[in-house]
């Protein structure tokens, strides 16, 4: 039998299409301030923030099996880090963003030692307790307004840029930069051997333990990365809001519940899921936000319905039907001739 010819493929036709669309979208977004009005830029900024948070939550829950209900701990931490940085130390606010990431990672490591002792669903509530502790501690910091919160002083706000347009642009581009970094980073992380090992475990392939990758290390790595990313996003959120309070910074609804709904509705455990979910979320919000509590009831019901009847999410429905994969993280063996399919026989 002649040796079959094959090659290892990562890209698919759809993924090359997605790459082109993605690059075009990136160019359009970078040029955003020149063609989107102020309100539009605010919405795009929020979109990017939710997309980033959902991508990181997806990384934790969908790939590492770490269902955290406490990621608001890192969002709030990043926010408070920014305010402390600017108000207490008088340092430039924009520079706080990368350092908030460092702070998030430094805090996430010891926290992981604690919460990783809880398994499964108990881990979820454990992370929530940690976020509550952060909230209560933040309320004790009287120099940052204690329980009622604090605004960024005008002088600090001015130091970002003199004009309001200038500030909006600076915040917008920072958000875009961090979001793109998080999305690309998430994608690349899943293509490393840690990422592949985690997917193997999730898919029930036992080979992961023997592939030389420590599962515990991989999970901890992802948790720390998500902590860093969450803190950077938190700094950005409260840089845009210019005001922080413990209940806003550590809100389980705003920074975790919506994020979970986005990921579940879009498709958990798939890179495309959070993207689809964020679109659906903003669509629902645009249509229903005036309804107040009813809006949240509908959002919760949609998420429960998706979890029960389409557990792979909306993207899962589409992808399974058409076999699409926009962001291939695995490698596929592609046989170059159909005749060589026979080589799998024998043994």
């Amino acid at each position: 039998m002649s040796a079959p010819s094959f090659h290892i493929a990562r890209s698919t036709p759809e993924s090359r299409f997605a790459l082109v669309i993605g690059l075009l979208a990136l160019v359009a977004l970078v040029a955003g301030p020149y063609w989107i009005d102020r309100n539009g830029m605010r919405i795009v900024g929020e979109f990017l923030i939710y997309l980033s948070l959902a991508s990181m939550w997806n990384l934790l829950a969908g790939y590492a099996g770490l269902v955290s209900v406490g990621q608001q701990a890192y969002v709030g931490l990043g926010g408070y880090f920014l305010f402390a940085w600017a108000i207490l130390f008088g340092l430039p606010p924009l520079l706080a963003i990368p350092f908030a990431g460092v702070a998030g990672a430094i805090v996430a490591l010891p926290v992981s030692l604690l919460v990783f002792r809880l398994k499964g669903a108990y881990f979820a509530i454990g992370t929530w307790v940690v976020a509550e502790v952060f909230l209560l501690l933040a309320a004790q910091i009287s120099v940052l307004g204690g329980g009622s919160g604090i605004s960024l002083p005008i002088s600090v706000v001015r130091s970002i840029a003199e004009s309001r347009d200038g500030r909006d642009m600076a915040v917008y581009w920072s958000t875009l930069g961090v979001a793109v970094a998080i999305l690309i980073g998430t994608y690349l992380l899943l293509r490393t051997r840690w990422g592949l090992a985690l997917q193997a475990i999730r898919d029930g392939e036992l080979a992961a333990e023997t592939s030389g990758v420590s599962v515990a290390t991989a999970k901890r790595l992802l948790y720390v990365v998500a902590g860093a990313g969450g803190a950077m996003i938190g700094a950005l959120i409260f840089l845009a809001k210019l005001r922080i309070s413990p209940s806003a910074a550590f809100s389980v609804n705003d920074w975790t519940a919506f994020v979970i709904f986005i990921t579940v509705i879009g498709g958990i455990g798939r890179i495309e899921g959070p993207i689809v979910g964020t679109f659906v979320y903003f669509l629902l919000r645009g249509l229903l936000a005036d309804l107040g509590p009813t809006y949240l009831i509908i959002l919760g019901a949609v998420a429960v319905g998706v979890m029960l009847f389409a557990p792979k999410g909306l993207w899962g429905l589409v992808a399974d039907r058409f076999g699409w994969q926009l962001f291939p993280v695995g490698r596929r063996l592609v046989l170059d001739t159909s005749a060589s399919a026979a080589t799998s026989k024998g043994a």
Binding site: G120, A257, T294, L296, I297, G300, A303, V304
Partner: peptide
């Protein structure tokens, strides 16, 4: 899989809170 019960009960939590609020 532990995700479905966790997420369904999480969704239920948000629903109950907001129904009571309403």
């Amino acid at each position: 899989d532990l995700l479905p019960p966790l997420l369904v009960s999480f969704g239920l939590s948000v629903i109950i809170q907001n129904v009571l609020l309403q």
